[in-house]
Amino acid sequence: MHELSVVESLLTVALENGEKAQATRILKIYVVVGDLSGVVDESVDFYFKFLSEKTIAAGASIIFMHKPTRLRCRACNAVFSPEGLNFHCPHCKEQQVDIIGGRELYVDRLEVE
């Protein structure tokens, strides 16, 4: 839901790193997105097209690498991905969990020339 701010920051990260490496064009941006981050691919693409105009990232494609929500059961230590809104541990049925994955939101790598 907050893709405009996300894309502004994503573009800054990509441009700073691209320019540091003296790239003349950024071709691909690989982004890791956790399912809990609330980021929608289509909206990112939409804003990116406008914001990247007249930069070395214009025309670049964004490759989304999704990470599922991962929970660790505090009762039995099992690690699992919840189904929908059911946060109960599939092993011991308790619902005492730490969120250990799914919040990721980072630029993993760039393909440049």
Binding site: V6, S9, L10, T12, V13, A14, N17, G18, A21, A23, L27, V31, L105, Y106, V107, D108, R109, L110, E111, V112, E113
Partner: peptide, 13 residues
């Protein structure tokens, strides 16, 4: 074509 490894949080700023 070169690959640059970044691993930088988008919300780090």
């Amino acid at each position: 074509v070169k690959v640059l490894t970044i691993k930088e949080d988008i919300l780090s700023a």
